[in-house]
Simulated assay, not measured.
Amino acid sequence: MKKIIVPIDFSEHSEFALKAAAKLAKKNQAEIYALHMLELSDAILAKTPDSIHPEALFFLKLAEKKFNEFLDKDYLKDIKTVPVVKHFKVFSEVNYVAEKHNADLIVMGSHGTSGVRELLVGSNTERVVRNANVPVLVVKNDLDRIDFKQVAFACDFSEESINSYLKATRLFDEMGTKMHMVYVNLPNDRFKSSLEIEHLVVNFFTKAHGNLDRIKDVHYVSDYTVEDGILNFSTKIGADLIAVATHGRKGLSHFFQGSVGEDVANHSTLPVITFKI
């Protein structure tokens, strides 16, 4: 992990994200690209034949000054921090900046458990997650430590989720994080027998690795909802991070039907990291 993107809106939660990114950066000798989205109207952004509109230039300089003051933190000392100011609040641009700088991770702050809309649905975080081709780490509080030792990776073991699983494996191996994969078996029409689940898992690892070495890290749990199964399993193993896979613009993976992905992040007291399928 060499480059980390942190969207900044000067809120308390974006500072939580910046602190978490700083801890990760120090641990991995990484750089931080702090990104501020400056929301300006089309009229102000309209250019004269030779230069940016004077009013737009004024707001840009004002934002840069405030941004530099915000980044003047003791915990950023000895970390290469690059401020990036974009002219308009289009959150697909976060992914553009991440790809332009070949970033390994986006870290975003988000509100706590005051409702799904506060975290993902219709929020800036949701927009970034849906557009991002790199993993997105969502934090909701000031983390005392960032040494993720145990992660619960929720998986349906479908072939389409292999790519996101491999991304997660590479990242967690690099971080020295133990990954526990969990399949939540549900009652009624989504119930699968043990044999059916085992066939899924064997096919999954055979196509992902050509071997079954990691099958020992797979856990099957039964619960009434997927989110309850994931959260209860995370508590049981003492996880300090939850990982989920997303379809990006197409919505959450079919494993996370409805609002399961949002519910997991919303009700979890742990950080949540997403990987695009």
Rank of each mutant, 00 (worst) to 15 (best):
A208Y: 04
V202E: 14
V202A: 02
V201T: 08
F205M: 02
L231A: 03
K207R: 09
V221F: 08
V201N: 02
Y224T: 15
V218R: 03
L212A: 10
V226I: 15
K216E: 15
F204L: 00
E198I: 07
H199E: 13
F204C: 10
V218I: 12
L231Y: 01
V226W: 07
E227T: 04
V201F: 04
F205Q: 06
T225G: 04
L231P: 09
V202I: 11
H199M: 10
E196T: 06
N211D: 15
R214E: 15
F204R: 04
T206K: 06
L231H: 06
K216H: 09
A208L: 02
F205G: 06
H209E: 15
L200H: 06
D217P: 12
E196H: 00
A208F: 08
D223T: 06
D228V: 00
S222T: 11
K207T: 11
I215N: 14
E198S: 10
L212I: 07
N203T: 13
Y224Q: 15
V218P: 15
R214P: 09
I215H: 12
H199G: 05
K216M: 07
D228Y: 01
H219E: 12
N211Q: 08
R214T: 07
R214N: 14
S222D: 15
V202N: 10
D223P: 00
E227I: 00
H199R: 10
A208T: 01
H209L: 14
D223I: 06
E227D: 11
R214Q: 14
G229E: 13
